[in-house]
Write a protein that binds this DNA or RNA. Structure first.
Lengths: 190, 190
DNA sequence: TCTAAAGTGGGACTCAGTACCAGAATGTAC
DNA sequence: GTACATTCTGGTACTGAGTCCCACTTTAGA
């Protein structure tokens, strides 16, 4: 069983995140306090921080889950596929589909561009992704001396840099360019 | 003239940074308040924040300057040199020399490993480096359509990912491995 | 229906970072 | 050296994020 309480918790989290995002989009991230989000969501400040460890996580909370999915997607690639190709394909699986709500994604990207604290938190989570991907990359490079060999980490990080660059280009094109092509373009330059 | 006041300011900054680093190393970054640093440095909390925009900058303040130097080093490479090679050589210029105080560098690395706020701030500054390097990379790739072409940004970011991986491997080896070789190793895997 | 576990709001607290002010120090022009 | 304008300084007060604790309520599940 999935646990009924867990589902409830997840639902509340999602709703609060929605309310928060609306407020942020309207007034700007820094202009909205945790108190205001809590009030708008019909809960106390205390409870708000029970659902989100930081204010930034209202917007970026889903990145944890995405990181795990991405790692799973990489692990699911054929064992004999090279690390770089496998990473590219994993990216396709996770970010290649046309988004259901591109406008929202664009608004979020803009918000992140002019909100330092959001950018910072985003980078932290990306680094987590790198930590998750590195072991699987090491396996595909047949490198066992993980901690003192820079290569697995370098490859994982480079791939994520490509993903970021693609995402930024997508944003700068106002969502007109195709994400798959951008990823391919970015990753094939190396 | 360099401005006498500027030199004084710089000197104070350096001294406070030294005092701060000592305190951090002894008690841990999070356990030392801005008040305590200010007191130990013989100044008021207010003045402390005049010298450092954030507590993290006591430790990471020099990264701004390093980013500019790195960019300059890249720009100084021969115009016909490829982007990747030029980046590698620029890294050598900046980080290839054997450090004057490896122990301090190791302590700092350890500190950053178990202090999230420091890691976050460090990532922010690295992103600044990426922003600085990207135009020069674009020039070397002969790409003019900067904003919507992911490649320059991808190359700059990937190179920095390699640098980071090299640095981490260096730390994990307790400073025994050679930074130049690690950089070469990381960058040649792509 | 009972109960142990989980969720809740409120209040108090720490600390980073900002704004403002009045006074002290100092470089420069005369 | 004197005068002046600029800069530096400490103090006080403030906002807002995040933590801790406590007493109370809700609720899943047996």
């Amino acid at each position: 069983m999935t646990g009924l309480r867990d589902r409830a918790r997840r639902a509340v989290r999602a709703e609060v995140a929605g309310v928060g995002f609306t407020l942020f989009a309207e007034h700007g991230f820094d202009q909205v306090t945790a108190d205001q989000i809590a009030a708008a969501a019909g809960m106390s400040r205390t409870s708000f921080f029970r659902y989100f460890p930081t204010k930034e996580d209202v917007v970026l909370g889903h990145l944890e889950e995405m990181g795990e999915q991405l790692t799973a997607a990489l692990a699911a690639r054929p064992a004999d596929e090279g690390a770089w190709v496998a990473l590219e394909q994993a990216f396709f699986d996770q970010f290649g589909e046309t988004l259901e709500d591109p406008d929202r994604a664009l608004r979020l990207a803009r918000m992140m561009q002019d909100t330092p604290s959001l950018r910072a938190r985003h980078l932290e989570k990306q680094q987590n992704w790198q930590d998750l991907l590195t072991p699987e990359v090491a396996r595909r490079l047949r490198i066992t001396d993980t901690p003192t060999d820079p290569r697995p980490r370098a490859v994982a990080g480079a791939a994520l840099a490509c993903l970021d660059a693609a995402n930024q280009a997508w944003t700068n094109s106002n969502g007109t360019k195709d994400m798959r092509e951008l990823i391919t373009q970015a990753m094939s330059v190396l």
